[in-house]
């Protein structure tokens, strides 16, 4: 597994395999979204429209369990995009040649990507808190008693840190295990690990977005 290592450089920016793969995933997701939502119909929706409606509706119902229907709809764009991006990049590690072909490396197996995703969550939580509770949002840092302030401030930083480390560690560990098993027993044995990776890739994407939605729920809860 060759982590890091620049493919080529544009000015001061080093373009790595992780960057090209995440760009490819972004393009694929955008193309699916743009091509799938042309010619939307209310009567007799096409197959593509039905599939996309199933995905979006399923995600919204899932987040509605935690956030409630109104806030789930408001935060669906960011949470749903996070989920789909993480799912696609987890599964991209299962395609043949991942990590071996230059320019193709699962982005979530790299700490930079997961920290970036966690920063998006962090900003969403803070901005959402100010948007829903206005000027009273910072007051919840001293809510039960005043000396909770350092603990609660620390918590806000630890949340995104643990989010990113969890996702990175899982995917990186999985990649390493898969590589070692393929070296040890090249026939059939990797299939079992790949089957497990399918399950864990989905669960990790789910857990990342579920925890994000719980943090958002805490920040945007109505003050009594």
């Amino acid at each position: 597994m060759s982590h890091g290592g620049a493919l080529f450089e544009i000015g001061p920016i080093q373009v790595t395999s992780v960057m090209t793969t995440s760009l490819a995933i972004t393009v694929i997701l955008s193309l699916i979204a743009i091509l799938g939502t042309r010619n939307l119909k209310v009567k007799n929706p096409g197959r593509g429209q039905k599939a996309l409606e199933y995905i979006v509706g399923g995600l919204r119902d899932f987040f509605a369990q935690i956030l409630g229907k109104k806030r789930a709809t408001a935060f669906l764009p960011v949470l749903g995009t996070l989920f789909l991006f993480i799912l696609f990049s987890n599964y991209s590690g299962l395609l043949p040649g991942a990590g071996k072909i230059p320019g193709f490396q699962p982005p979530t197996g790299h700490l930079g990507t997961t920290v970036g995703l966690a920063i998006i969550t962090f900003l969403t939580v803070q901005i959402g808190g100010f948007k829903y509770n206005g000027i009273h949002y910072p007051a919840h840092f001293v809510k039960p008693v005043f000396f909770m302030l350092p603990l609660l401030l620390l918590e806000e930083v630890i949340h995104p840190l643990s989010l990113s480390l969890r996702l990175y560690g899982n995917i990186y560990g999985e990649e390493t295990v898969l590589e070692k098993i393929s070296e040890l027993i090249p026939l059939l044995a990797p299939i079992i690990i790949m089957g497990l990776s399918l399950l864990f890739g989905f669960i990790q994407a789910l857990v990342f977005t579920m925890l994000s939605s719980i943090y958002i729920e805490e920040a945007t809860a109505e003050e009594e």
Binding site: R166, V207, M210, L211
Partner: peptide, 9 residues
């Protein structure tokens, strides 16, 4: 799943 994820971390 949530509790397991927190422990797994």
């Amino acid at each position: 799943i949530l509790a397991m994820a927190l422990l797994e971390a």
